[in-house]
Design a protein around this nucleic acid. Structure first.
Lengths: 183, 183
DNA sequence: CGGATAGGTTAACAGTCGTTAACCAGTTGG
DNA sequence: CCAACTGGTTAACGACTGTTAACCTATCCG
C-alpha cells in the first residue's frame, strides 16, 4: 500500500473541502489536484464520503489524544487548562483547513461516521469540561459544556481572520480564551 | 408582487442552506419545502445564487444597521460595547440558520455579491473596533480587529451547542465575550 | 368584455456528478 | 518465469443539477 499517496489525497481533499465545501468539490477536482485523475481515488478510498469520514475521524482522534496527553502531564488544573488552550491554538493555527471542515462538514457524514466522530468530539469536550470544573466549582456540567463550546468557537475563528502575526495571534487568543472561561 | 412568498422562499432557503450547505440543496428541494415546486422559484429570483446573495446581504445589512443604532444610543463606550454584545447575541440566538450561512457560504457568492457583503461585514466589524478601542487604548487596529473576530466566533458558536436555557446562554455568552474583549 | 400580468405547472435541455467496468504497465514473490 | 497484485488509465452508466420553454389559470384594470 502506498501510504504517502493515501495521506496526500486526504490532505488535498481536506483543503479543497475547506475552500469550496464537500458538495462543491468533485472527485475529478481532488484527483487532478493530486496529479492523478478522477476514478483513481477509488483505488485508495471506498467513496467520496469515505474521504470525508476518514478526515474527520482522524482530526477528532488527534485532538482528543494530544489533549489528553498534554492535560495529563500538567502539574495542576490551572496548568492543564493552559495546556489545552495552547494545544488547541497550535492545531487551529497549524491546520486551518481541518478546523474548517470539522466545523461545517459534519452533516455530510453517513450515520456510522457521524456517530463515531460525535463520540470523539464529546470525549474531547469532556477533557476540557473536567479541567474547567475543578477551577470553576460554580459551573454545573451543562454550563461548563456551553462555555467550552463557546471557547472552541473563539479559538476556531482563526482561519477566518489572521491579519496579525502568528505569535501575536497565539498570545491574544490564549489570553481571551482563558479569561472567557474563568469569567 | 407577492412579498410574503418572496420572504418565505428566502427563509426556507436559508434554513436548508444552513442544514446541508449551498451545493447540498437543490432548487427542487427549496421549492417543495415552500409548497411549490422547482422552477417556480424563477418567478421570484433570477437564479439559485441570487437566493444566497439576497440572504447574505440582508443579514449583513441588518447586523450593521441595528448595531449602529444600538451603539449610537448608548451613553458611553462601555455601554455601547454591552449593547453590541447584546444585539449580536439576540441575532445569533434568534436566527441560527442565518448565522451559519453567513459564516460558511460566503465563498459561494459571485464576485459582485461577495464584494458587497464583504464591505458590509467590514463596516460592522469597524463599529465594534471603534467601540473597543476607546476602552482599550493599548490595542492597535489590527489587534482589535482580530479580537473582535474571535469574539464573533465565540458568539456565533451558539447554533452548534445550546443545551442550557436561552436566558442562561445569553448571560453566559455576554459575560464571556465582555471579559474576552477586555482581557 | 378583454387583454396584460402574476404565479404557477410540466417537459425538456445540456452539463456534471459519483461510481463502475474494462483494461494496462510495473513490481513483486514463489 | 509466470502469476498476482498495485495503482493507474479511459469509457461509459444512470442519476441529478440549474435553467429555459411552453403552457395554463386567476386576477386586475381600462
Amino acid at each position: 500500500m502506498s501510504a504517502p499517496r493515501h495521506q496526500q489525497i486526504l490532505d488535498t481533499a481536506a483543503t479543497l473541502f475547506a475552500e469550496r465545501g464537500f458538495h462543491g468539490v468533485s472527485v475529478h477536482d481532488i484527483g487532478s489536484a493530486c496529479g492523478i485523475s478522477g476514478p483513481a481515488l477509488y483505488k485508495h478510498f471506498a467513496s467520496k464520503n469515505d474521504l470525508l469520514t476518514q478526515s474527520l475521524t482522524a482530526i477528532s482522534e488527534r485532538l482528543l489524544a494530544e489533549g489528553l496527553t498534554r492535560s495529563d502531564s500538567a502539574p495542576d488544573a490551572d496548568a492543564a487548562l493552559d495546556a489545552l488552550i495552547g494545544w488547541h491554538i497550535d492545531f487551529a493555527l497549524g491546520n486551518p483547513a481541518l478546523i474548517i471542515i470539522q466545523e461545517r462538514e459534519w452533516a455530510n457524514l453517513d450515520a456510522a461516521g457521524r456517530k463515531e466522530v460525535r463520540s470523539l468530539q464529546l470525549a474531547y469536550i469532556d477533557v476540557w469540561v473536567d479541567t474547567l470544573r475543578t477551577l470553576r466549582t460554580d459551573l454545573d456540567p451543562a454550563e461548563a459544556r456551553a462555555a467550552v463550546q463557546a471557547t472552541f468557537g473563539l479559538l476556531n475563528s482563526t482561519p477566518h481572520s489572521a491579519r496579525i502575526s502568528e505569535s501575536a495571534m497565539r498570545t491574544r487568543l490564549a489570553r481571551m480564551a482563558r479569561s472567557a472561561l474563568l469569567a
